[in-house]
Design a protein around this nucleic acid. Structure first.
Lengths: 205, 205
DNA sequence: GAACTATACGAACGGTCGTGCTATCTTGTC
DNA sequence: GACAAGATAGCACGACCGTTCGTATAGTTC
């Protein structure tokens, strides 16, 4: 049977992998996933280029694993707290509050990893772009589902189109992120919070 | 006196410059302003690398002139039609309609030039980033001014904060752009149009 | 047509890119 | 404590990067 022979990893190797990928996720929000270079990444964490490279089969593989690392961070910091919330509307509030908080806290130096990646890869081709696009769709679908649940619970107006509503919430978050990073000014995040909270007021209709 | 000796240009040189800068603006929305390479740009328009380079003192100079070229295109296609509109509210509608139209028409292959540039340069330093940030501020200030005028004319609710209102309009435009480019799906532009037109309804309060 | 010079080219510079190969450490297993 | 294998470093490769140079061509002015 052609089971792909997975080599087992040593503890120190796993530690290095994590360090590499975490640094890669950070640098990617500054220089882009494509602009990320193996050499500068190696310098940045004090490893040799070849030593670092040995962990991955190619730069594309590094990029793919970097995306997964960033996803994991987003899930831990933003999605999981939201899913722990009691009712549907509170889930939405927590989701975007956590999102904007993790930007303000500069978890990634260049703002939301996925906003950076989406803008950069928008018109490119290949598995990295495909994965990023897939994750964006999944995020939007989750928000839309939350909206639907909040409507079912009578917490949001039933006459709002959930996809449209989700689009607008995401728009506030993205604009807040880009403005904050570009001008280094939290006022943009405040605008985003204000817009989101206004839309997420309980049952106005 | 240390007047910088400005060389006068020949007609064919000016034609080449325009061709270079227009192509550069296009490529920059795909590969980014930094990812733009002199060599591939030269190939793309059938010139030699050195011949192309002779038009600019440095890559940074090329980037700066590329930004100005893109600005001129945006002004012609989006801003000027809006300023020709009769009343303030119509100015806003025309501004964003033209904006979304120029994205859908793929005037730039990677969507709005400035959304790309803002995302890419957000956390960088240097004159190119400074110029892009300045232009973003100017755009937002213009929108805010249009909102104020529409309020003064009684066409928009007077209790809306103009800066907040402008932020939200821009958010819809940006999200529409990124979604459209990433998924190659006009539905995102439709969401943006719907959101903008809903906010730009005449005098609801 | 002559003189001038903007324009364009080919070649080459030092550097960095992603990617291999090989040797030398280091860790975990028996 | 020997041994297999993973982890890391050193070195080299071809390609491309931005940039500079010398030189040939072609538009402009007299």
């Amino acid at each position: 049977m052609a089971t792909t022979h997975e080599r087992r990893r040593r503890a120190d190797g796993e530690r290095s992998r994590q360090k590499i990928l975490r640094a890669a996720a950070n640098l990617a929000t500054v220089d882009g996933l494509e602009g990320l270079s193996i050499g500068s990444l190696a310098d940045h964490i004090g490893m040799s280029k070849s030593g670092l490279y040995a962990h991955f089969r190619s730069k594309e593989q590094l990029q793919l694993e970097t995306v997964e690392t960033a996803l994991q961070i987003l899930n831990t910091l933003v999605v999981e707290p939201a899913e722990a919330a009691a009712d549907p509307l509170e889930r939405l509030r927590t989701l975007y509050d956590s999102f904007l908080d993790h930007i303000e806290a500069r978890v990634f130096p260049g703002g939301c990893f996925f906003v950076s990646a989406e803008s950069e890869l928008g018109v490119r081709e290949g598995p990295v772009k495909d994965r990023v696009a897939e994750l964006q769709r999944a995020w939007a679908a989750r928000v839309e589902e939350f909206v639907r649940e909040a409507q079912a619970a009578g917490e949001l107006p039933a006459d709002e189109d959930p996809a449209q509503f989700a689009f607008e919430l995401d728009a506030y978050g993205m604009m807040g992120n880009v403005g904050f990073v570009l001008h280094d000014d939290p006022a943009y995040l405040e605008h985003a919070r204000a817009a989101i909270h206004r839309r997420l007021r309980r049952r106005r209709k």
